[in-house]
């Protein structure tokens, strides 16, 4: 098991390396000249060349990547070009290892950019995750048990409705009615636990969390229902019944256990994806999370931030995959090796 995990982590690192390379290539493969973009509208040729040099874009792509890769381990100083550094030492920015880059747009190292935003996106992810898991599995199980009844059809139908509505609509809807009009919740503004305590941290997460959760819950309701129904048709349930087990015991110990396994896999991967930020929800509620950062960095052609984000999100997903696979071995004895 340990050897398996180590192998997977190693493969993950290789994958992350490849991802960073691809990102660099893609960035420079775009038709827009990033130096021109950074320079602005009224940009003379000399200014553009200067900007290009300052940002390090005059180097070949592979060399830029190499500096980046070395910088991850050893730290870097900006600007890249030595002559520029010497000419204006007060403008030199030092990026300590592990250095993911320095964003000229936001005047901060990528790591600094992440520092404040990661808790925001993570809180949102955790809140949404708890809501959609609890709601999705419970409602899905109820729908499966009462299959064909009006409860079942109601649950499935409602799920479909929420799945179809775009998150910006749901988010705005919740914001308008629950926060502004009826004032059940305060207008959400992210408050970290350190600043406002757990209470206000939670209350401010409810609406955006719910926005996200409703969307995912819809999918999970349908899937839980399907898995539970499939599990209910299995032969071992007939055996359980023939042994004289009480219906509730059969449901929880036998049916749900089998149905939960594929759900765990999916939940793990969905959660990991969500850790990277939820763009629309963060925008609607004005939460400064990784999602917002991602959109902004692409719009401003901020290469270092883009690369940093790609690696961070990639790492989340790779790690989640590894954890889920290992978890599966604990859940399903048939999967274990040896």
């Amino acid at each position: 098991m340990f050897a398996y995990a180590v192998r997977r982590v190693f493969a993950g690192i290789i994958m992350l390396t490849a991802m960073s390379m691809v990102t660099f290539v893609m960035f420079f493969a775009s038709p827009i000249d990033p130096a021109q973009f950074a320079c602005g509208k009224n940009c003379s040729l000399e200014q553009r060349a200067q900007v290009r040099k300052g940002l390090g874009y005059d180097q070949p792509v592979w060399k830029q990547w190499k500096s980046f890769a070395v910088g991850v381990f050893k730290g870097r100083d900006y600007p890249e070009d030595k002559s520029l550094r010497e000419s204006a030492p007060q403008l030199v920015a030092h990026c300590a290892a592990p250095c993911l880059g320095y964003s000229r747009v936001n005047i901060a190292t990528v790591t600094e950019e992440f520092k404040d935003r990661i808790p925001v996106s993570s809180s949102l992810a955790v809140m949404a995750f708890l809501m959609w898991i609890a709601g999705g599995i419970a409602l899905g199980a109820i729908a499966a048990i009462t299959k064909g009844s009006i409860i079942d059809r109601g649950v499935v139908g409602t799920a479909l409705v929420f799945y179809a509505f775009p998150t910006f609509f749901v988010g705005l809807f919740l914001l308008k009615f629950l926060a502004i009009k009826w004032q059940i919740f305060p207008v959400p503004n992210y408050i970290s636990i350190a600043d406002g305590g757990i209470g206000s941290w939670l209350t401010n997460l409810v609406l955006p969390g719910l926005t996200l959760a409703l969307f995912y819950m819809a999918g999970y309701v349908r899937m839980t229902r399907a898995f539970v129904l499939e599990s209910m048709g299995e032969d071992y349930l007939r055996t359980a019944k023939a042994k004289g087990l009480a219906p509730r015991k059969i449901l929880f110990k036998h049916t749900m256990r089998a149905a939960l396994t594929p759900l765990v896999t999916m939940a793990g991967l969905d959660f990991a994806g969500l850790l990277g930020g939820a763009v629309i929800t963060e925008t609607v509620f004005n939460y400064n999370g990784l999602g917002k950062l991602a959109v902004d960095s692409v719009q401003t052609y901020d290469l270092p931030t883009i690369v940093g984000l790609v690696l961070l999100l990639g790492a989340f997903v790779i790690l989640a995959n590894i954890i889920v696979d290992i978890l599966y071995a604990f859940i399903d004895p048939r999967v274990r090796v040896g």
Binding site: E234, D235, Y236, K243, A258, R334
Partner: peptide, 23 residues
């Protein structure tokens, strides 16, 4: 009848692999 199942009358089925819970 539930109390009698498995105690006064028991049943075994055709395919023992699918008749037992894999987990």
């Amino acid at each position: 009848i539930r109390r009698k199942r498995g105690r006064e009358v028991a049943m075994i089925f055709q395919d023992p692999l699918s008749a037992m819970h894999p987990y």
